[in-house]
Design a protein around this nucleic acid. Structure first.
Lengths: 146, 146
DNA sequence: TAGAAAAAAGCAACATTGTTGCAAAAGATA
DNA sequence: TATCTTTTGCAACAATGTTGCTTTTTTCTA
């Protein structure tokens, strides 16, 4: 493993946590790193069972909660009762998420992607309903599984 | 309670179950009735704790599974790890769901609605991705809570 | 409509997932 | 480095799903 890359990565992790007013701890760095080195989204279980790392379940729950609160990651609803988490872009911060992109779940490899370039469409609601957040999840076959 | 309405309802329940090749049982009729007399969607917990009825948890799980398999109800993903179930329209059947409508979750009363008249939009995906099903969940304030 | 065969319900035991309080450990601060 | 604050990890618990098996209910057919 390249030592330099690890150091750079470590600085990036620390910077990200500090930016969000969080204290620097091993668990937070390790979990954040999982997200950074990962293309798709992660579920709680993914993180907990991550090879080589033994995270306490409670720590994972609490860390993810903090990350969501601070706008570092956002949640992605799924139809199988397993919330996925993915890194937010810069516009997100404490108390306000701005996730206007759609999510994509691959039927084949089951990876969940944030398609940051695809903006959620305007939805015309029936009279009486007022819209807040719009969540779009597309299920299909991803670029790696075609 | 009007007796006639109950009888009519009962016939409707039996018809619905028979149409889908299911045997007529008390649990199935009661759970199906909950959906019919309900505007929004129901979670597993909603059904299990329904006042006046004591359903065995296993029965509820198995019944919902059968209903989903037969295309009687469909699932609605949520961001809080609690799958909601709602009645399908006629076009759904065994092995194929055709839910092209969007779903709406009210922030205030937390009810989940199927907005059958609002069709899911076309989503333009990046190169390499092919779309199957598109799920849209809008969160906001419903007609009853304005 | 009774009796046999098939299907479903109910129960118990278990597995997984999520929550809470608290003591110990680690991080921040001066 | 000493002290204060925050976070972690543990234990105990609660809630949610799952599985196998026995009993009950439904269906089918004579």
């Amino acid at each position: 493993m390249p030592k330099e890359a690890t150091i750079i990565n470590n600085n990036r992790l620390i910077k990200l946590l500090k930016q969000n007013g969080l204290s620097i701890t091993d668990s937070r760095k390790k979990i954040l790193q999982l997200f950074l080195e990962q293309d798709g989204a992660l579920s709680h279980g993914d993180i907990e069972k991550r090879a080589g790392e033994k995270f306490d379940r409670v720590t994972v729950y609490r860390t993810l909660q903090v990350f969501v609160d601070k706008g570092i990651v956002h949640t992605i609803p799924t139809a199988d009762n397993s919330i996925r988490y993915a890194l937010c872009k810069d516009e997100c911060g404490e108390g306000h998420h701005h996730d206007h992109h759609i999510h994509f779940v691959c039927d084949t490899c089951n990876t969940t992607y944030c398609l940051d370039d695809v903006v959620t469409p305007e939805i015309k609601l029936p009279k009486g309903y007022s819209a807040g957040h719009v969540e779009v999840v597309v299920e299909g076959v991803c670029k790696n599984c075609q």
